[in-house]
Structure formats: C-alpha cells, structure tokens
C-alpha cells in the first residue's frame, strides 16, 4: 500500500479517542445503510465497505473506504480514500482520492464518520456517468510520493454530482 499509509501517524489525542469510541458505539447500534465497518482493533484507521445503492450506476458493486483519523480529530478532518479499485466516478481519482469539499475545506467538527459516509454514497448515487476526472493522470502522477489528499488544494467547481 503506497499512498494509503502515508498520513502522519501521530497517536490520537484523548479527546479524539473518546469521540471515536463514541462514534464506534453509535455505528454499531445504528450503522448507515449500505455500509459495513470491518472490525479491527485499530481505532485510528477504519476500513468501511460501501455497497452501491440499488438503482444507481454502482448497484451491486462493493468498494472499500479507508478512513484515517488525525491526532486532533474532530477538529481536523479525517483522511478518507477509496482502497483500490476505486469506483469510476468524475470526482474520484484512480488512486482513490475523493474530491469532496466536506473532506477538506468544508469539514466541520460536527460531522461524523457516518455522515461523511452518507455524503460519499450520495455523491456516488447522483453520478450519471462512470468516468475518471478529466485531470486524473496529471493528478495521480503528482501524488506519486504517497501524498495525502488533504495536502491537495482542491477546486470544488461542480455541485451537480
């Protein structure tokens, strides 16, 4: 795994730990529809299975999201990427990086893993075409040294998909 294991692995703060434990419990009681959390003992990295919603381009397809939490979660956004193979989508790069504003500039500490997952599924569901972003090759080449998507300066131009 190259780009996926790159984020600076500073241990979670106590506050981040408490909050994530709470989110974990909440998830177990009430998981968002279409998602399965793959149980590990690593609180700092969640791997989540996403099932494409029925009636959309991604129906019957299963993908994996990897969520890495920074030391100061939830002040800082988690890093969320698709593990290969990433779904074909105009906002998802072939290296799994996702162009979605709430993961970067528009992150708010009131968001949760669960709400982020729902946003990603809704982004998938509203897609009308299965294709890579226009600048995929250039972007992926730029990220080759295991750069985190959080270091990308994203332009959020499309609010349709």
């Amino acid at each position: 795994m190259t780009s996926s294991s790159a984020p600076s692995r500073k241990a979670l703060s106590k506050i981040a730990c408490n909050r994530l434990q709470k989110e974990m419990v909440e998830w177990q009681v009430n998981p968002p529809a279409g998602f399965k959390h793959k149980v590990t003992d690593n609180l700092q990295r969640w791997v989540i299975e996403v099932s494409g919603a029925p009636g959309t381009l991604y129906a019957n397809e299963i993908y994996q999201l990897q969520v890495d939490f920074p030391e100061h979660y939830p002040m800082e956004a988690p890093q969320v990427i698709f593990l290969p193979p990433a779904p074909l989508h105009p906002h998802i790069y072939s290296n799994g990086h996702i162009c979605l504003d709430i993961l970067y500039d528009s992150w708010s500490p009131a968001m949760t893993v669960s709400s982020v997952c729902i946003s990603i599924l809704s982004m998938l569901s509203s897609s009308t075409v299965k294709q890579r972003p226009a600048d995929n090759d250039r972007y992926v080449k730029n990220c080759r040294n295991g750069r985190s998507p959080k270091e990308t300066r994203w332009w959020f131009h499309d609010d349709k998909v």
Binding site: I15, M75, Y104, D105, S106, P109, K150, E151, R153
Partner: peptide, 25 residues
C-alpha cells in the same frame, strides 16, 4: 476548544497554506 483551534489554525496557516480551512479563510 474548537474556537481555540480555529485561532491557532489561523495563525499558523496563512491564507495561501494548502490546508487553510473555510473558517480561517
């Protein structure tokens, strides 16, 4: 805590920083 975080973020990340948040901008 969050408010304090925004303040430090703002100080340490000038506008052109890659990870500047909406709030600080």
């Amino acid at each position: 805590r969050w408010w304090d975080w925004l303040q430090t973020e703002q100080k340490s990340n000038p506008i052109d920083s890659l990870s500047s948040t909406v709030h600080s901008v």
